[in-house]
Computed example of a mutant assay.
Amino acid sequence: MQLLALILYNADGGRRVVSFRPGALNVVTGQSASGKSTLLDIFEYCTGRKTATFPIGPMTDTVSWYAALFQLDTTRAFAARPAPVPGKKTAEQAMLKFGPDLEPPPYTHLAPNTDRHTLRQRLGRFIGIEENHSTTPRSRGPSSTGAHLGHATLLCLQGQSEIADKNHLFHLQSDRYVAVALKQTLPYFLGVAPHDQARKYAQLNAARSRLKQVEKDLKRAQDPSDTAHVTLAALWHEAHALNRSQRQLRPTTTSRPCRPSRRPFSHLPPNRPASTRRSSATSTSNAPVPTCASSSGPSRQTAACS
């Protein structure tokens, strides 16, 4: 695909044509701020770029349609888009027409017949860019990724300040979003990656984002169960400090004398001699009174004698 001309139309029917010679080096010269770099913006806008980046001035005040004429292998293509309405940065409508001997039509023949997405896809198909557009869901909204004509133009254009830039090689590479898009699609244009690699890369990033979000949700769901007992204990201590609780949180240990059994010799065998019983009774009566350690809790009380 070679650029034959860029055309500007105004509402009065006049037009300005900037012609280029196909198959040759075209050099555009002029004074500073005369609109040389704006030609790149017009080219990108005519090939489907979303945002118009034209500098505000006489051109944006008078031009109503921007158009480009391309030479393809066996035919020509005329691509045009209306100027954004005041207060907007883009226009979704577009006009696309093919013909072997096509020339820029007059202003009265301009009429939208497609949108910028279809314009970009159809032109890309003519130059061999396979259909690889994909919309991948993300936590912050859908993300459209795929190698298309817009990425190809980034490899072919260079602004005046980009030619001598030693840090950037491609057009608009200083924009971090453009740099990421170039990183994902350059292998496709070099022929070392399949046409769906960009889509798979976007799907992988979306899956990683969803996994990270699910892990965060799981952690938030587990935290309350881990800290519930701590919160409950803190609430109980606060209630106890305010004398709002009558029950003790922990069991206490106290010592008290054991009550002697009413039948101290009932545990002896029945056939044991009486002398043995008396000696046992004597030794028992002279023994010190044992003490018991009792533990009282919310639902039970136990005692151990020694």
Results as ranks from 00 to 15, higher is better:
6 L>K: 03
7 I>T: 14
11 A>R: 15
14 G>A: 11
16 R>G: 06
17 V>F: 01
17 V>M: 02
20 F>T: 11
29 T>H: 15
30 G>R: 10
33 A>I: 05
38 T>R: 03
39 L>V: 06
42 I>W: 13
44 E>G: 12
44 E>I: 00
45 Y>E: 01
47 T>L: 11
48 G>Q: 00
49 R>G: 01
51 T>K: 02
59 M>E: 12
61 D>I: 01
63 V>N: 05
67 A>E: 03
68 A>Q: 07
74 T>M: 09
78 F>K: 07
81 R>W: 06
81 R>C: 03
81 R>I: 09
83 A>E: 13
85 V>T: 15
90 T>I: 01
92 E>W: 12
93 Q>F: 00
94 A>M: 02
95 M>F: 09
97 K>E: 04
98 F>E: 07
102 L>F: 02
104 P>F: 01
104 P>V: 05
108 T>I: 06
108 T>H: 10
115 D>Y: 05
118 T>C: 01
124 G>S: 07
126 F>L: 10
126 F>Y: 15
130 E>W: 01
131 E>S: 15
135 T>S: 10
136 T>V: 12
137 P>H: 07
140 R>D: 15
143 S>W: 12
143 S>R: 08
146 G>C: 02
148 H>A: 14
150 G>A: 08
151 H>D: 12
154 L>T: 05
156 C>H: 08
160 Q>N: 04
163 I>F: 08
167 N>D: 15
170 F>N: 07
171 H>T: 04
175 D>H: 05
182 L>Y: 01
182 L>I: 08
183 K>M: 10
188 Y>F: 12
190 L>Q: 15
194 P>Q: 01
198 A>K: 02
199 R>Q: 09
205 N>E: 14
205 N>D: 08
206 A>T: 02
207 A>E: 11
210 R>C: 09
214 V>P: 00
218 L>I: 13
220 R>Q: 15
221 A>I: 07
223 D>V: 04
224 P>Y: 08
224 P>S: 13
230 V>M: 04
233 A>I: 02
238 E>I: 05
238 E>V: 02
242 L>P: 08
244 R>W: 14
247 R>F: 13
249 L>P: 04
252 T>E: 12
252 T>S: 13
252 T>D: 14
253 T>G: 04
253 T>M: 15
261 S>L: 04
267 H>F: 11
270 P>N: 06
272 R>Q: 08
274 A>I: 08
280 S>P: 00
284 T>F: 11
284 T>C: 03
286 N>K: 09
288 P>N: 06
290 P>F: 09
294 S>R: 10
295 S>I: 15
296 S>L: 06
303 A>S: 14
304 A>M: 04
305 C>H: 10
